[in-house]
Design a protein around this nucleic acid. Structure first.
Lengths: 375, 375
DNA sequence: CGACCTGTTGACAACGGTGTCATGGCCAGT
DNA sequence: ACTGGCCATGACACCGTTGTCAACAGGTCG
C-alpha cells in the first residue's frame, strides 16, 4: 500500500502520467476482460477517439482515407466495441428481452428458439426470462429489461394489461401469442376463435354431441377466444353448452388429467374433447391412455412432440410457434434501428393456422343408445 | 500529454453552470429510460455519492444512522442501480451466459428452464444463446458473453476443446452435459458409460442378441462413453459387436428413421435398439410405429414427452436435465461472489441417473427360429 | 480579397456507478 | 497532553463510448 504518491496533491494518480498497464498489480481481484479499446484503435490510426467512434458508427463526414485507416486499425487489433459502455452512453444496446411463461414449456421453447435465430441474424442477442405466468413477476422482469436498455422486448403477456406504457419507457415491444394493450405495439397471435370454431366443428362433423372443453383458468383473450369459437360451433349445431363439460380449471398437466376423468364419468359422458393448449394435451393424452379410453375423440389446440406417434395419432390445430416467432421478430425489428422507429407494424397480426387430422379427431361418436329415442 | 492546461476556454459549457434538465429538448431521439440515479439518492439523503454507493453494496464502515437514511432515500425514490454503469466500472454484472446446442431441443429447454429459475433465485439473469453445435459459433458466442462481462457462463460444449481458457479471460465457466477441458472448471454430466451399460444389459437380459446402437456422429466424450458402455455390456455377454448394428451417423430425427429401417432390414435384423439420445428417440419411435414394428425392443438414453403414453411406453434412462441444471447452477454460483472465487467445485461432477422400465425395454426377444439350430 | 459555407476533425463532458486515497473526529495507549 | 490508529466520509478519477460544439482547412461567392 501507500505506493508512490509522495505528493498529497492529485488523489488517484491515474494513468495520465504513466503509460498505462503498470497499475494492474494493485487491484488484484479485477478481471481483465476487455481487449483493445477504441482509444487504442484511434491511437494506432493516428486520429482522435471521436473520429474512430464516427467510423465505428458509420457516422457522416469522415474522409475516405481516414475511414480506411481506422478500419485497418480495428482489423489489426481485432477490436470489438464494449456493449456496456455503449449502452451506458448511447442509452440502448443490441439486446432484445424475451419474456415467456416458461422456457421449459414446449410451445415457448420453440418460440424462443425461432426468435433467437431470427434476431441473431439481425445482430441482436436475447436476454431471456420466464414470467411463470405471474403478472407481478412479469412486470418486474420487463422493467428490469427496460432498465438494462434492451433495444426492444418481446412478451407473452399473462394478461392484456399486465404491461403498461409506463413500464416500457418508450422501449419498443411486441406481444406474442396473446394480445397486449400497449399503444403502438404489435401483437402476433393466431386466429384463436376461428381455429377453435373449426376444431369443434370437426368433432361435431364426426357425430359428437357431447364435446368437452378443457381450458386453463386464465382470463386471457387467447383463452376467451378459443372458448368463443367452441361456443359458436355448438350454437350453430343447435347444441346447448353444458357447464358440466366446460372445464376451465386446467392449469397444468395433472389437473387436466383429473378433469378428463370427470367428464368421462358423467352420467352423460363426453365422447369428444377439445383441449385448448398443447400443455393440457400433454396431460389429456396420457390420461386417456391410462384409462384405456382411446375411443374418445380429441383435438388439441397446438401440436406437440409425438402427437403423430401415439396410437391413435392426435389431431391438432397447428398453432405454430415458429410462424408466430418469425412474424414477431420481423415486427420488432421494424421498430428498431436501422429502420424508422415508430413506423413498424401495429395492432393485431394474425398468423395462419390449420387443422391437421391425424386420427383422434376423426373418431366417430358412438351410436348413442337411447338418447335418440328420448329426443 | 499536457493537453489543455492553459484553458483554451471551456469547450462544452456542460450542465455544470446550468441546473440540469433544460437540455433535454436538444437531444430529441434519446430515450429516457433510467429512473433516479445514485446521485439523486445521495442528495436526498444528504450524503456523498460514494457513501450512497457503499450502502448500496453493503460496504463496511457506514454508520447505522447514515445507512438507514440512505436506504430510506432509495425506498422513497424507488431507486434501482443501473446494470450497464455498474458493469462498466466494476467489470462484471449479474448475468450468466447460457450456451446450448439449441434452446428448441427438448433436453436443453428443460435444462435452461431449470438453470434460469435457480440462477434467478440467486439474483442473476440469463443471457441465452444457441451454438447450433457449431464450434466456431460457440466460441464466438462465448467470447461475446465474456466481453459483456457476464459473471459466469454455462456451456454445453460441442467439443471438449471448443472453449479455451483464453476465450474466457477468467470468467468462471461450468460445462453441462458434456465434459469441457478448461482448467479449474467443473463439468456436470451423467454417468454415460455406466448407464449405457445398464441399458444394454437390460435388453440382453430380455434375451436379445441383436441390439442396435443408434448414436450421433459427434466425437464427444458423452457419445463415446455411451458407446463404451454398450460395448462393455456386449463383451460381458460374450457377444461380438456387429458393425452393421452400430449406427453412428444419426444426426437428426430423419436420419435416425433411416437407420432404424436399415437395421430392421438386415439379413439378421436387430431385435432391440439402444437409442443414445432423446433427440434420436424422437425419430426412432415414430419410425417403429410407422413401420408397424412395435415388437422391437427399445431403450432411450434420455426421457422425453409422451414416452409414457405411446404404446408400448418407452423404457428410458432418466438422464435428467433438471438434475444436471441444478447441479450446474450450484457449481457456478459457488465460483461467483459472494462466495470465495476460485473455491468452487472442479472437475467432473456426475449426477445420478436411473433406468425407468415402461414397456419397450422389456419386450422379449423372438424365439430365433433356426439361429439356435445353426449355432 | 474578405465573408460565408461546407466538410473534417478534435477537445471535452457526460452516461451512472465504483476504486483509491485523503481527511477529520474520536478514542486508547504511553 | 501527544501520538497513532481506526472509523466514517468525501473528492476525484476512471470504466469505454457517444453527443455537443469549437476549430480549422479549403472552396465559393459577392
Amino acid at each position: 500500500m501507500a505506493e508512490q504518491a509522495h505528493t498529497p496533491r492529485r488523489a488517484g494518480e491515474p494513468g495520465s502520467t504513466e503509460g498505462s498497464t503498470t497499475t494492474t498489480s494493485s487491484s488484484a481481484a479485477r478481471r481483465r476482460v476487455s481487449g483493445p479499446t477504441l482509444r487504442d484503435v484511434a491511437a494506432l490510426a493516428g486520429v482522435s477517439l471521436k473520429t474512430a467512434s464516427r467510423v465505428l458508427n458509420d457516422g457522416p463526414n469522415v474522409s475516405a482515407a481516414t475511414r480506411e485507416a481506422v478500419q485497418e486499425a480495428m482489423q489489426s487489433l481485432s477490436y470489438e466495441p464494449d456493449p456496456a459502455a455503449r449502452s451506458l452512453r448511447a442509452g440502448h444496446d443490441r439486446t432484445v428481452g424475451v419474456v415467456v411463461d416458461s422456457i421449459g414449456d414446449i410451445f415457448f421453447s420453440e418460440l424462443a428458439a425461432t426468435l433467437e435465430s431470427a434476431l441473431d441474424a439481425a445482430g441482436y442477442s436475447c436476454l431471456l426470462a420466464s414470467s411463470n405466468r405471474e403478472a407481478d413477476r412479469e412486470r418486474d422482469v420487463v422493467r428490469s429489461l427496460v432498465r438494462r436498455r434492451c433495444a426492444g422486448v418481446i412478451v407473452a403477456p399473462s394478461s392484456p394489461t399486465s404491461i403498461s406504457e409506463a413500464d416500457l419507457a418508450g422501449t419498443p415491444v411486441v406481444f406474442v401469442d396473446r394480445v397486449g394493450s400497449v399503444q403502438g405495439a404489435a401483437s402476433v397471435v393466431s386466429d384463436d376463435p376461428g381455429m377453435a370454431y373449426e376444431a369443434t366443428r370437426h368433432l361435431l362433423a364426426h357425430g359428437h354431441r357431447r364435446v368437452a372443453l378443457l381450458s386453463d383458468s386464465l382470463d386471457l383473450p387467447t383463452t376467451r377466444g378459443r372458448q368463443e369459437g367452441y361456443r359458436r360451433a355448438l350454437a350453430e349445431a343447435g347444441i346447448e353448452v353444458d357447464p358440466a363439460l366446460t372445464r376451465m380449471q386446467c392449469d397444468d398437466e395433472s389437473s387436466a388429467m383429473r378433469q378428463v376423468r370427470e367428464v368421462l364419468d358423467l352420467d352423460e359422458p363426453a365422447t369428444a374433447i377439445f383441449s385448448c393448449s398443447s400443455r393440457l394435451s400433454l396431460g389429456v393424452v396420457p390420461a386417456l391412455h391410462q384409462f384405456g379410453r382411446t375411443d374418445v375423440a380429441l383435438v388439441s389446440f397446438g401440436d406437440f412432440t409425438m402427437a403423430d406417434s401415439v396410437q391413435p395419432a392426435v389431431t391438432v390445430v397447428d398453432h405454430s410457434a415458429r410462424r408466430i416467432a418469425q412474424a414477431a421478430a420481423e415486427a420488432l425489428l421494424a421498430h428498431l434501428p436501422p429502420h424508422d422507429p415508430g413506423h413498424g407494424p401495429t395492432g393485431v397480426i394474425e398468423v395462419p393456422a390449420r387443422l391437421i387430422p391425424r386420427g383422434t379427431g376423426e373418431i366417430a361418436a358412438p351410436p348413442a343408445p337411447e338418447q335418440t329415442t328420448r329426443a
